[in-house]
Amino acid sequence: MEKGKSRRAVRCIEALAFLLIFVLLLAFVSDALRGRDRPEFYSERKNSLDVLFLGSSHMLNGVSPMELWHRCGIASCNLSENGQLLPVTYYVLQDALDRQSPKLVVLDVYKVIQDTLYDEKSYLHTSLDGMPLGLGKLRAVYGLLPAGERTEFLFDIVLYHDRWKELGSLEREERDPDFKGYSPLYTTETHEGFQILPESDTSAPPEIPVDYLRKIVELCREREAELLLVATPFTTPVPDDMDRQQRVNAVKELAEQWDVPFVNMMHSLDEMDFDLNEDLADTYHANVSGMKKITDFLGRYISERYDIPDRRGERDYAAWDETYIRYAEKLEKLEDE
């Protein structure tokens, strides 16, 4: 009887140990094949970031945390992604606030134009895959995706296993963590005669993004982080798309309702010295020159209005200065390429 019991115990331990090794290996292999991690945020020391930038590609190409560090000593990270809609941003922010306690969250509202939970699935992958598997990811996947489509997000080896062929080759898509989430664009596109609609010209944005914008406002209140809504300068390809401007303009009224500040840079171009013919890489996105102007403008705005400490010279942030040097070199080198 005793013998049978102890044998059972040994077998239980054996099975559990095997499962544990399997899970650890699975995590390791998944990481290696994914190549989409974001150490600049997820490996960052807990509660070390004072400002978080979130939103779509407008923010991704528009704000560089390292420039902000260099100018104002603000420790920040840019968590934006291409095609990230506001519902996705909501979940990314929720997970981010579980890891960091920023004083300020700066949110790009451009995607208020789009009335779905997420854009193409590949965009959802770029937004969620870097997030480690945990409560935050479960909330996001269950909140955004219908049953039957969640596996490739929760166990993304299902999607990425084919990449074993690419291992060791240089065409990996990893983003340089030294850029702290910023992605530079180097082209320039002119937009002669582009008409900027007056601030009062609005049209009501669709329900889903407004809903999630409200949720983001509530979330920030709950977590005691200030929220700043922004729209970076953009143009539209055809006059028909003018309602994008109108919808973004409409955020002003919503922001007033919710008592949250909103900076629509479309109406501050002169103050920013932003030139639509020089500072945009394409229709929507700032190039490096545009990024410097946006970051500079936001840096001044934040420094004047919020109590964000200048971390330069602090011992815990010594590495940030080294990161900046590497960042500046790489930014220049990429431009030469």
């Binding site: 590609s57 291409n82 095609g83 193409e120 590949s122 296993h161 690419e166 898509e173 992605s183």
Partner: peptide, 11 residues
């Protein structure tokens, strides 16, 4: 996995 749809390029 369709690499083409995952390459980081801005839209």
């Amino acid at each position: 996995y369709d690499a083409a749809s995952f390459i980081y390029f801005a839209f």
